[in-house]
Design a protein around this nucleic acid. Sequence first.
DNA 1: AATTAGTTTAACCATTCGGTTAACAAATGT
DNA 2: ACATTTGTTAACCGAATGGTTAAACTAATT
Lengths: 203, 203
Amino acid sequence: MTKHKDNQTEEKILIAAQQVFQAKGMDGARMQEIADEARINKAMLHYYYRSKQLLFEAVFNKAFALLAPQLNAILNDDSALEDKIRSFTQNYISFMMKHPYLPNFIIQELNRNPKFIESIKNNVAFPNISKFKMQVEQEVEKGTIVSVNAEQLFINILSLNVFPFVASPLIKAFTNVDDNAYKAMLEDRKTAVSDFIINAIKK
Amino acid sequence: MTKHKDNQTEEKILIAAQQVFQAKGMDGARMQEIADEARINKAMLHYYYRSKQLLFEAVFNKAFALLAPQLNAILNDDSALEDKIRSFTQNYISFMMKHPYLPNFIIQELNRNPKFIESIKNNVAFPNISKFKMQVEQEVEKGTIVSVNAEQLFINILSLNVFPFVASPLIKAFTNVDDNAYKAMLEDRKTAVSDFIINAIKK
DNA sequence: AATTAGTTTAACCATTCGGTTAACAAATGT
DNA sequence: ACATTTGTTAACCGAATGGTTAAACTAATT
């Protein structure tokens, strides 16, 4: 980062830290466990990242940088609303099935420390609703969809796509479904959710 | 609980533990902080609840016992599907606005320890989808709603109602909305969400 | 070969944390 | 009145934890 040559150690640490932090959260993670996971000496963690807090922030920012473009796909894209909803749902669920820990990690840590969001809000690619809002308002005016508040619609889209990943243990228990069947249900949702949304707003 | 007389101390501890655990989670909570919050000596925590783990479980079970009946309102009630969706949405959002920490706490701790759910599954009032599933299938057969999978519909209802409480810091940031405006949006959702759902499944 | 800068390790340190102990106070029962 | 049980406190304990240090090691640079 600063004086360090391009060493593989720094990368190994970040990967290990990612796994441990995402599984156990900031408070539950142990520096020793991260070191073990990376198969290096614990002092190396501090050599490269100075403190647990800074290592955590590196992991968090990387995770957020991975998530943000996914959301911008629906917020900033130029294609038609219905197409966007379909492609977003399809892509987002595929993406999340590859990174199931991601949304929970981000949500949990932001709840733990809400001030933390200010520091990432400055990020260039921070998702923002304004363009999406204009598009929805235009569609309402044109009469292609029912009268709907853009913020509420965005919350609905996000909820339907993200929540099943955040609350999976709970949902599995309520619906008496095992891991494989749940995966199949998520697969179905790639189209079922967009059908649901479009039905809800279509005139 | 066991040999203790109906002392107010035990109750004070549980209330304080609830606040601290729900704000900071199992790993982030400190026994000393709970004692301070309850204005009692730390040793009392162990006198009444033996260990941090057991105190945590008491808090968790109480929280879950508060949540479960809310869910059973839509799963086990006999009224018509559309009415249930409306009343559930209305009641659930009102309820959550009074207990905003609840869903996050439960979801977070179940993700931290998925085995933990087995111990509460035995609970008599543990929410179960089976009756709701039958009702949805009947409505589909009668032709009053579009063909829809009951589990998926249940996930959708849950997502739309719960997620805005779980991810509030994130949503507030994306939509550029402050605390008061967000509260107003949640208020709107009491009817907006049920309209959205019913629109989505109506023929 | 000697110097230097960067990297790695084992041992160590101070603090925090969950939990215990022993003495004491206040009820409760006889 | 006395004894026993229950409730409360301060002081303490050992283990775990984030972080530091100083020395050893490695590999370029001169």
